[in-house]
Design a protein around this nucleic acid. Structure first.
Lengths: 205, 205
DNA sequence: AACACCGTTATAACGATGTTATAGTTCGCA
DNA sequence: TGCGAACTATAACATCGTTATAACGGTGTT
């Protein structure tokens, strides 16, 4: 016996998606401070209670926005064709990450600065997401070409690269770079450096 | 003729400092969401209007908190004794940066995620601060030991290192690393990689 | 087919926030 | 001593997230 069928299960997912889309729209237009439940409800043609029934409150909405953004970032990374040379592949992944973040700066702020305030999703859940998995796959292909060395696990290298790209993009969004070209140059340099340094240590051993 | 002398210039700076200290205290205890003007005013034994007369509003208070935190970070980096070997010096600067950020996570959130929302201080003002200058000084000493190469300016290398350290620390504060040791390992690896990659390219040329 | 049930929705109200208006107060300076 | 300007405290205002409360609508049962 089914315990209890929801009142109107049809359209719930569509409602959630539309509400997330509208939230992303408002977020891109008015920034994080301009995203209020009343404004969002009006944009969706409903009342603020919809947020509570669909997401359990504003925090739940932000959590869903966090996951949706991570998913979008994962798709952006998956859309990068796996280049035969893992080094090239990794470089292009970094550029795709940067492009996605620059295209959605407010959403990127949610998956970084916002989760810094109150932990939305823990590290374990993060690394299950497709973006990190895609990065890890490229790293594994790189390591598969050489003799495996226990000091460098795919996770360690993936973490190092993730930190590199995130650091550059975060600084760029904060206006620390004079031009976008300068940011991209630093990104390319740091990515190549992290991978190159690892390979050099593996050869030396 | 002095245009207009302030009513009570004495004590203004002391009031500002005490208010910033109390704000940092509340911020460390209750987080960013718990910092309200009324709570801050009560902690200082005054009313919310003090924030407006001293800082021009909450944004002005956060701006001042931004600058104060940057100053504190600068002092933390200046407190690192300049090691004869610039490579060691740079590594220790990175660790000091991480230690300061971990000791004041909420303040670190202000100088990163918060300024991402609405630009507090632009890049030009940032690079005048003592923290960046200290880093740049260490880079310049490193470059002075070798043949100077036009492709790597001290600013470029300093930006690259700043991005590396910020990336690791930011991810660590977001809980992306399983342990603090893992974060420190990635920090050491990435810092050494960025500097080593640059030196390798200089030798090859 | 009629009924009871349960989730959803809209309205209104509550507490709290940042901000602003309005007096009252206090200090510096002529 | 008195004037004026800056600061302060109080209160009000608009807005925010959240929470009752009651009406609505679909679902499964009788």
């Amino acid at each position: 016996m089914p315990v209890a069928a929801p009142a109107q299960p049809a359209g719930r997912d569509a409602q959630r998606e539309e509400m997330l889309d509208q939230a992303a729209l408002i977020l891109a237009r008015d920034g994080m401070a301009g995203l209020s439940l009343r404004k969002l409800a009006e944009a969706c043609g409903t009342s603020t209670m919809a947020v509570y029934s669909l997401f359990g409150g504003k925090d739940g909405l932000l959590d869903a926005l966090y996951l949706a953004t991570m998913e979008g970032l994962g798709h952006a990374l998956q859309a990068v064709p796996p280049h035969p040379d893992p080094m090239v592949w990794l470089a292009e992944l970094g550029l795709a990450y940067r492009a996605y973040s620059l295209a959605h700066p407010a959403l990127y702020g949610i998956i970084t600065g916002a989760s810094l305030a109150h932990g939305r999703v823990d590290a374990v859940n993060l690394k299950v997401l497709s973006g990190y998995q895609t990065l890890k796959r490229a790293v594994e292909r790189l390591l598969a070409e050489r003799d495996h060395w226990r000091r460098y696990t795919p996770d360690l290298v993936a973490d190092a690269l993730w930190a590199v790209v995130h650091g550059v993009v975060s600084l760029e969004l904060n206006g620390h770079f004079a031009t976008g070209d300068a940011a991209e140059a630093v990104l390319r340099h740091n990515s190549a450096a992290v991978v190159g340094h690892m390979l050099a240590e593996m050869e030396r051993a």
